[in-house]
Amino acid sequence: MCRLIGAVSPQPTTTRDLFAEDLQPFLALADEHDDGWGMAVRVPNHTVEVVKEPERAHDGLRLRSLLDTSTTDAALLHVRMASPGFPVTMANTHPFGDKSSAFAHNGDFSPAGALDEVIGADLLAAAEGQTDSERYYLAVRRRMDDGLGPVKALMQAADDIRSLADRLASLNCLLLTPHGLYAYTEHDPASEVIGRRGPGYFGLHYRTTEDGRTVVASTGWPHPAPQWDVLPERHVLELKPGTGAPTVHGR
């Protein structure tokens, strides 16, 4: 399983300041989630830039430098714990995407090829790795390329997995586009007691800070109420750069 965090702010700032006091508790999770790291940011020309490495976040200077020099008003950060059978390679490292969108996943479903027909041969040919997570992204991307907005694309991709996969643990994810940051949460409660961490492990929480930033993150350090809100299951959190104000979309 992986861990992920995303944030937006009213004004561009360094990614270190964007994540602020949540950065170090999040990066501490890389002691266990040590199979790679990746970051996606919204850049000034309103495209998305992805940087990632198949190594523990603490082991390289590149992430440290990026946190201090990359300036943005929307970003996501991911640390990976590789699922069995999926090697630690650049192609399998999150986030997946290009200049139009970036996607990071916390969870798994099987078989990984359950979505291949939904994705279509053209997008499937662009897959670089073997993971179910990349195919989850490509299913979302298919919906967006066909004209859906990110909120509906995330919900419909989750519907596809639920109907086509034999098993799912969690579909928690973050999607960054030039227009916003989106979080979706869903998990099978049984997955919390079968080789996982217990109740709440797959929760996504979010909060808006006094300086106007909104942060959304998976668990691993305290997210006490009322400072943090729980994102309801099968809902999408939408965060718009420049405002930080969260919008929660249900079905």
Rank of each mutant, 00 (worst) to 15 (best):
R196K: 09
Y201T: 15
G180S: 06
H46Y: 14
L231I: 02
S70K: 10
E134M: 05
E32M: 15
A112Y: 12
R197A: 13
S133M: 10
H249I: 06
S65F: 12
G212A: 01
D211P: 02
V51G: 01
V43Q: 12
D160Q: 11
E134S: 02
V230Y: 15
G38R: 02
R42V: 00
R197Q: 13
R213N: 03
L239Y: 04
G120C: 06
E128Q: 13
G85D: 07
L27T: 00
S100L: 08
G195C: 04
D132I: 03
R135N: 06
L29C: 10
W221Y: 15
M155D: 11
Y184L: 09
A102G: 06
G250H: 15
K152Y: 12
Y137I: 00
L138T: 00
L61E: 11
Q130L: 10
L148T: 01
P241W: 14
P189V: 01
A225G: 04
L171R: 09
H179Q: 14
E186A: 11
R143F: 10
E53K: 08
T13V: 09
Y184K: 09
V193P: 00
A127M: 11
D122I: 05
A157P: 00
R80Y: 03
A190G: 03
T72I: 01
L239C: 07
R234W: 09
E53G: 02
Q130W: 10
S100M: 05
D146L: 13
S70D: 05
L171E: 03
T72S: 15
A245M: 11
D68E: 14
R143E: 13
Y184F: 15
F202G: 05
S170R: 02
C2Q: 05
E210T: 08
T243C: 06
A225W: 02
A158F: 04
